[in-house]
Simulated assay, not measured.
Amino acid sequence: MRIKEVIVVEGKDDTVAIKRAVEADTIETNGSAIGKSVMAQIALAQSRRGVIILTDPDYPGERIRRIISQQIPECKHAFLPKKQAISKNKDDLGVENASPDAIREALSNVKQEMMQYVEVIEWQDLHAAGLIAGAKAKRMREKLGEQLHIGYANGKQLHKRLQTFQITKEEFSLALQRILEEE
């Protein structure tokens, strides 16, 4: 599988994992303090070939994703569920721990940011679905992120991602239905 876009990852081990899964070029941020030269490389890659951001499913990974997205519009995003990015001894979470199949799956479900935000799913819809408050809210958001391939997010981030990736009410409802059927 050859990927046209340049994949932005956090480090060298992530690049190795990507290259085991697909043919692709990568840019490494080397952590969340992304330097100007790295940001310039990402901007150039976005203008020439497009960019897919594939960072670790943890706070620093989400911070890197947010920093790049704010400065470089219309990036594509691939998300790995935490359970597919955790090391065998469960002490490390990252892209480098994911299997080639998990990486290919994440890259086959890429989402693209849209410049215009369309309010498709209301905040009240998230409350009604039990995604904002309650004992099961966090687990439900985690499952929804997996179903929609948009990664785990807290309530506020989930609302923004649903809009950013223009998830329709129909997609949202179908994903919730599948989650409820699993339980």
Rank of each mutant, 00 (worst) to 15 (best):
E171K: 08
G35D: 12
G134K: 09
K83R: 11
L126I: 10
I64E: 00
T55N: 00
I34Y: 04
A17M: 06
P81W: 10
V120W: 03
E113K: 09
R48G: 00
V110H: 03
A175D: 10
I132W: 10
R20F: 01
N30Q: 13
D56Q: 09
T29Q: 07
R63L: 10
V51E: 00
L126F: 05
E105W: 13
R63Q: 12
R48N: 09
A175K: 02
R178E: 15
K83I: 10
A133L: 05
G11K: 10
L80W: 01
R178P: 00
L93H: 05
L107N: 05
Q157E: 15
V22I: 14
A17Q: 06
A128Q: 14
I72W: 03
A128Y: 05
A45K: 03
G151F: 03
H159A: 13
D92C: 08
E105R: 13
K90T: 14
F79W: 09
A102W: 08
L176R: 02
A98G: 05
I52A: 04
V95M: 06
I72R: 02
S47K: 15
I18C: 09
L162W: 01
I179V: 10
T168Q: 05
A33C: 08
I52E: 01
A102V: 14
T15F: 11
T15G: 04
V110N: 06
V51T: 11
Q84E: 15
T55D: 02
Y117T: 12
T15R: 13
M114L: 12
V120M: 11
S87A: 14
D125H: 14
T15L: 05
V22D: 02
I68L: 11
D56S: 10
I34G: 03
H77D: 08
I167H: 01
L126Y: 02
L148M: 13
R104N: 09
S99D: 03
E10Q: 06
K138H: 07
R49T: 13
T15S: 15
I67P: 00
D56Y: 04
Q166C: 12
E182W: 03
Q112M: 12
Q166F: 08
E146K: 09
E28P: 01
D91Q: 14
M1V: 11
A102R: 09
L126Q: 05
I53Y: 04
L144H: 04
Q112T: 15
K12E: 14
A129H: 10
L44A: 12
I132M: 15
V22H: 06
E96I: 05
G50F: 01
P60M: 04
R178I: 06
K36W: 00
K136H: 13
S47Y: 00
M1R: 12
E119N: 11
F172Y: 14
E113P: 05
Q157F: 03
E181N: 14
S69W: 02
T55G: 01
Q84D: 15
S47G: 07
E122P: 07
A43W: 05
D58I: 05
R139Y: 07
G31H: 07
V8L: 11
R66F: 00
I3R: 01
V38Y: 07
E62G: 11
Y117R: 08
E122N: 15
A153M: 08
I64G: 01
Q124R: 15
E119R: 13
H159V: 08
Q46D: 04
K136G: 03
